[in-house]
């Protein structure tokens, strides 16, 4: 038996193919505004970043599992060519290759899930990871839809993920405690805080990302099932009132009479 084969037997580890779904979101300091009668997000001067849940947790955990057990990490994004710059960051952090499904117009979660499903089906991935939500729309729709479309189990909001052989052990934070479950690959999993620590790409990673494959594939052209009628900004924050600690009765009065909370 070759040295390599015996190593795999002992560790019961399997060379895994990981697919990590990454989306782009506006940098958190972006001033949010809308155009076209408040039906469209104003992209002007927006700095786009990788969705932190995709980057910090899904991607980094996939990389950690690959580094421990061997494997290949592909990232996939649905969007236009402008996204390539940000996709390169995922390659710089350590993904082996990237796929961009060349969708240029608006696409809702269903349209995006359908596009990724086509790529996922043909790729033979053992694990498909994504963030628990995007920080702009907070939809949390994609994972469930994608799993359904490709007929795989879906585990949401995972905060821990380990693999031995074909079986993964997953922890989920649930109301008042934790749930621990196991699942055999392949499956789709959405990742939450706790899964991994954010990684800062180093110079070597950044330079090698330049030559890693970023494959652009034509979209299936699946349409959206929903359309946005209107966006609204939250009401402006009102000023903060300081009440002396010596006058708790004043706090009660204000909460009751002005804020009408009690």
């Amino acid at each position: 038996m070759s040295k390599l084969a015996s190593h795999f037997l002992i560790n019961k580890n399997k060379f895994m193919k990981f697919l990590v779904c990454i989306s782009l979101v506006p940098d958190t300091t972006t001033k949010i505004s809308f155009v076209d009668n408040d039906t469209k997000f104003n992209n002007d001067k927006v700095q786009w970043i990788l969705n932190p849940y995709d980057e910090w947790y899904a991607l980094v955990r996939a990389l950690e599992l690959k580094e421990a057990n061997g494997g290949n990490v592909t990232v996939v994004n649905v969007g236009p060519a402008e996204n390539d710059q940000v996709i390169r960051k995922a390659l710089a952090i350590g993904a082996d290759d990237a796929i961009r499904i060349d969708v240029t117009g608006d696409a809702d979660s269903f349209a995006i899930a359908s596009e990724i499903a086509a790529v996922a089906k043909s790729g033979g991935y053992d694990m498909i990871l994504l963030g628990k939500e995007t920080i702009n729309y907070n939809g949390s729709n994609l994972g469930g839809m994608l799993a359904e479309l490709i007929d795989l189990p879906f585990i949401s909001y995972a905060s821990k993920l380990d693999v031995a052989g074909n079986t993964a052990t997953i922890e989920r934070d649930i109301e008042g405690g934790k749930e621990v479950l196991t699942a055999d690959v392949p499956f789709v999993i959405s990742c939450a805080k706790g899964m991994a620590e954010a990684r800062i790409p180093n110079m070597k990673g950044i330079m090698s990302a330049k030559t890693k494959p970023l494959n652009v594939v034509a979209p299936q052209g699946v349409g959206s099932l929903t359309s946005v009628v209107k966006y609204e900004l939250p009401p402006a924050k009102s000023a903060c009132k300081m009440i002396s600690a010596d006058h708790p009765e004043e706090l009660i009065r204000l909460l009751h009479e002005e804020a009408k909370m009690i």
Partner: peptide
């Protein structure tokens, strides 16, 4: 790459 380096 230059932008990624700066941001990192």
């Amino acid at each position: 790459e230059q932008k990624l380096i700066r941001d990192s």
